[in-house]
Amino acid sequence: MKGHFITFEGVEGSGKTTQMAILGHALETRGYPVVRTREPGGTKIGDAIRSLILDSKNQMMDAKTEFLLYLASRAQHLKEVILPALAEGKVVLCDRFADATYAYQGYGRGLSKREIELIGRFVTGGLSPDLTLLLDIDVKKGLARLKGREEINRLDQEALQFHESVRKGYLNLAKRNPRRIRVIRTDAGVEEIAKKIKEAVDDYFRVP
């Protein structure tokens, strides 16, 4: 029994966490077994790696080190959480996956996009989300939303140009993968955004 793999992507402050929670609740109400998870993290080992990556004290971290840490977390995440859940026929909702690596480390850090894809495929075994919801917001607006957070992590502190490059990477991916990646603008209110996401998810489930 094949499950469904749905990912949420977007720059900082795009509202992924909120919208993923809303969708998860809606799907459970309709009788779907749902697993909510995130990257980096999702496992005990992955959470330890997440702390290392996002720690503001690690400003000297090399881009390649960062890239490989993300992939290490993903490998463990796939083994412990994602693949078992999909094998059981569950709906896996994941806050970021491989698209984030392409956008952040490829466009943001300037690492080779070809190598990111090749090494990334080694880790995922070719697994790709069935549907990706790209929550798109102007970078300045997204970063402004972070002011309410208790803690600002290492990536949050990057220069505006870094985040602009990440957004460009995401939108480029969406153009290359229009059937899988649905771009949802997050300028509207929470309920309106949730409605658009519901429509995208309903379209996905209607297609055999």
Rank of each mutant, 00 (worst) to 15 (best):
M1Q: 12
M1T: 11
K2G: 00
F8D: 06
G13W: 10
G13S: 12
T17V: 08
M20A: 13
L23P: 10
G24L: 13
A26K: 13
L27Y: 10
T29I: 13
G31M: 12
P33G: 15
V35Q: 09
V35H: 10
V35W: 07
R36G: 06
R38V: 02
P40D: 09
G42V: 07
I45R: 02
D47W: 00
A48E: 03
S51W: 01
L52I: 08
I53V: 11
D55E: 00
S56E: 11
K57G: 11
N58I: 02
Q59Y: 02
Q59C: 00
D62V: 07
A63I: 08
E66I: 09
A72S: 13
S73D: 03
S73M: 02
L78E: 02
K79L: 06
E80P: 00
V81H: 04
I82L: 13
L86H: 08
K90R: 15
V92T: 06
L93W: 07
R96Y: 03
R96W: 03
A98S: 11
D99G: 06
D99Y: 08
A100F: 01
Y102K: 06
A103M: 04
A103L: 04
Y104P: 07
Q105H: 05
Y107K: 05
R109I: 04
R109K: 15
G110D: 05
G110Y: 04
K113L: 15
E117M: 15
L118C: 04
L118M: 09
I119Y: 06
G120I: 04
G126T: 01
S128P: 00
S128W: 13
D130M: 09
D130V: 03
L131M: 12
T132L: 09
L133I: 15
D136F: 09
I137C: 14
I137W: 07
K140R: 15
A144F: 12
R145N: 11
L146K: 09
E151T: 11
R154T: 01
D156A: 02
D156M: 00
D156L: 00
Q157W: 01
E158H: 02
E158P: 02
E158R: 08
E164W: 04
V166G: 05
V166Y: 06
G169R: 01
L173D: 03
K175F: 01
N177H: 09
N177M: 06
P178G: 01
I181V: 09
I181G: 00
I181Q: 04
I181Y: 04
R182Q: 10
R182K: 13
V183Y: 07
I184A: 05
V190K: 14
V190M: 12
E191H: 13
E192R: 15
I193R: 03
A194N: 11
K196G: 07
F205K: 06
R206E: 15
R206P: 02
